[in-house]
Design a protein around this nucleic acid. Structure first.
Lengths: 235, 235
DNA sequence: TGACTTTGACAAGAGTTATTGTCAGAATTT
DNA sequence: AAATTCTGACAATAACTCTTGTCAAAGTCA
């Protein structure tokens, strides 16, 4: 009561703040589990606590309410994807199309491997509240930014104008997201590699097209010669 | 009590079944209003009834529950879009790219003109229930089908293989949808025509690219000569 | 006019949920 | 060992919502 920071008692071998973070972690996992199966709307706090093996009091220790938990779960998923993507981009070397393919694979495989993530990240967060909407929008912005980086690496000739308003990267990101929607709702029956191939078709199509549109105001031109493809068509 | 069909009493100048459909209509409008502003989750039946100027009893006359109403509202929006799109496609004549552009305009303008529709159709329906998920999926399937029809008209050389699994049309439809998301959440600040132009870039990029990939198994080819563009770059 | 139907306002009950509080016992420190 | 703190089980309240029911007034028909 006097000084929380000094009340760092060891319990079960671990200090207080660590125990708290462990509980928080359990709640995040339980939240993902619940949101991904029952759905956000039909999940109540009691259920989350049971899944986490904790009582309600500990829920409010870490989160203000259910939306707060969803927000944290979502942010975790998105942050992980972002860092993974940046790592792939960083290790791309001089094979940018292979890197793009890897990034798409990572994105999709993560959903297939753990459908709870897919359901939560792609569906449950939508239409929950203005706050979560904002978070979703930021996540889309980041995803579009990633797409843009890959496009720039693979198609260095693209003019800045093609990226104006980030509409094109947003659209390309949207392709992948909505293809994921369909894939998830359809129960992942289409082979992963088929999806990746088609996504790469879209990526290359867009990259080439906007690379061949050098000036904003000028008339449509016929396309110039392209450098050799570096994309390895696996399978 | 004996025979409903014969109890077609006139009230306020209209027959019973017509009065009922009018009430239903009021509820649909009120539902759109409520879902589009408060959001589906935070809307209760009382609110809908007040907006409709009716009492709860009449809600249950036309709908089983809130989800049932959402389903009907959504279906109405989607059906309208589909018929509008088919009409544009039907009147396309020999200017398929203009038709595609018109269809995209119609799609986007509908949202801008009535943001309630945008919010409901794009966000509120998601993650509500497995039933609504199925409906959403079907709507996406239809949208992808529309995109495919426009692609076929504008790029007759596209091989069937490029459409296998409908992944590419789904992706292109996804571009438009997610670009809409961003546009809606951002409050429609980007001019409509800018969005349309970029969407057309995507459409043309993809159309050209897959038209130039004639065979499934063959190696990547360089692109053949294209016929003259028919797309009018308005503004 | 009298019988009947439709309508709208409101009541009421059942069910669910969020959130805070209590408390006894276990674990740990001094 | 004694004092203190942590933990988990559960209670309890308040609030909200759905759904059905009642009832009187108004409208319509014969």
């Amino acid at each position: 009561m006097k000084n929380r920071a000094l009340q760092q008692r060891v319990y079960g071998g671990v200090k207080a703040d660590l125990r708290e973070t462990e509980r928080r972690k359990k709640l995040l996992t339980a939240g993902l589990e619940a949101f991904g199966t029952r759905g956000y709307a039909k999940t109540n706090i009691k259920t989350i606590c049971v899944l986490a093996g904790l009582t309600e009091r500990y829920f409010y220790e870490s989160f203000r309410n259910k939306e707060d938990l969803l927000s944290a779960v979502y942010q975790e998923l998105v942050d992980k994807q972002k860092s993974d993507t940046l790592k792939i981009l960083d290790e791309a070397g001089n094979r940018p199309l292979d890197a793009a393919s890897s990034a798409i694979r990572m994105f999709l495989y993560g959903f297939q491997e753990n459908p709870l993530k897919a359901q939560t990240q792609l569906f449950e967060v939508m239409g929950v509240s203005p706050g979560i909407d904002r978070q979703y929008r930021e996540a889309m912005r980041v995803l579009a930014e990633m797409v843009k980086l890959f496009l720039m690496k693979a198609f260095p000739g693209i003019s800045d104008d093609a990226f104006r308003g980030n509409i094109i990267p947003t659209g390309l990101a949207g392709s992948i997201v909505l293809i994921s929607h369909e894939w998830v709702l359809g129960g992942f029956v289409t082979p992963l590699d088929d999806i990746i191939d088609k996504c790469m078709d879209l990526f290359i199509a867009v990259g080439r097209h906007i690379e061949s549109k050098p000036r904003p105001g000028s008339a449509q031109k016929h396309r110039p010669v392209h450098r050799k493809l570096q994309h390895n068509q696996k399978r």
